[in-house]
Write a protein that binds this DNA or RNA. Structure first.
Lengths: 186, 186
DNA sequence: TGCATCATGTAATCAGTTACATGATTTT
DNA sequence: AAAATCATGTAACTGATTACATGATGCA
């Protein structure tokens, strides 16, 4: 399990409320780990009990108060320990692949729309990642600071997301070509 | 949820026992969907209750009897219905990316071993996929049958696996280069 | 007036993992 | 004699999703 650890990383990068974390899990961190606010609040409560995070009530004007979480030494230690444990290379869960193989027992051409929809989603994600890269890593606002380790690491993770989306788009092209060919052949 | 549907696809491709399904989920189907035997037996029982699969007791010599499952019309219909429903493009769960960003708060160089281990695993997977492709899709044993829809679809899914592994290896190279550079710089 | 955003949570359910359990046969 | 493979399951627990719930402020 790594949701705890993903939260620790996110809070170390910048302290924030459960709500803010939930929003980050829709962007940034969420590119490679998803979580809903319900899950986050629950886990945050447990982590607080374990002393992995500490809370500070922050009164706000014009908005409800929020609880700002940050990471004390104990939380850092927990993260550090996890970083030194080996993890299993992830196994994929790919619904679309199941559908594609399943289409052999139905009408393959009916899948074309669905695949095109996925293509669009991945196109958007790629554009979003590239915009983020321009903004945070290659723009004039963000000069190369060779000693900023965190930035470098964030960048290499983002490059992974970009590579993933490009690969996926190329594959979906292949899938579409295959489906069109199968339709033409019968 | 798609475990049911993955099982339907696998059983339509070839009927088999829960044990055999569990083995397929370690190979072939398992490239894009994982499941343990415990989960499979449980789901299979539910599917039997729903009439999605039917069982036949097969006595064997020198081995325990097995229950061979196959897919009746009702199961086919369930699969067909799912195929026509849109699904959400998957969101990734990538522990290693969390670790890489987390390394900013620890020692990035300590991650090199871990990344190299992952590199090896993905190298092996790629070799395994390529061997499967040679065996089933490009070898002399497997001539091009342009009208075999199922084969074509299985092949395009396998090409997806191959593309994924190649992309991952290239990214891990990038990660390793970044970690080495960060180590050299301080 | 109504909708979106900020902010936090509970409850119920479903999916997935880990541990435990049995027993025959075949291979080393 | 021991280990591996074939074959099937139950029980307990953990993780994740979905539904429900509240209430304030700001904007159109």
């Amino acid at each position: 399990m790594a949701l705890e650890h993903a939260i620790l990383v996110s809070l170390l990068e910048k302290p924030g409320s459960g709500y803010e974390l939930a929003r980050r899990f829709e962007r940034s961190i969420g590119y490679f780990w998803t979580a809903t606010h319900q899950q986050i609040y629950r886990v945050l409560k447990r982590m607080e009990g374990d002393g992995w995070v500490t809370v500070r009530e922050v009164p706000q004007q014009g908005r409800p108060d929020k609880k700002e979480y940050s990471v004390p030494a104990l939380g850092r230690a927990a993260l550090s320990q996890w970083l030194h444990e080996p993890i299993e290379p992830e196994s994929v869960r790919h619904d679309l692949a199941v559908k594609i193989r399943g289409a052999a027992f139905d009408d393959p051409a009916a899948l074309i729309r669905e695949v095109e929809r996925h293509y669009q989603v991945h196109t958007d994600r790629l554009a979003h990642y590239l915009a983020g890269e321009r903004r945070d890593f290659t723009g004039p606002e963000a000069p190369a600071l060779p000693d900023d380790v965190g930035r470098e690491l964030q960048h290499v993770v983002l490059r992974g997301g970009i590579a993933y989306e490009r690969m996926t788009l190329a594959w979906l092209d292949d899938v579409l070509a295959t489906l069109h060919r199968l339709r033409a052949e019968r």
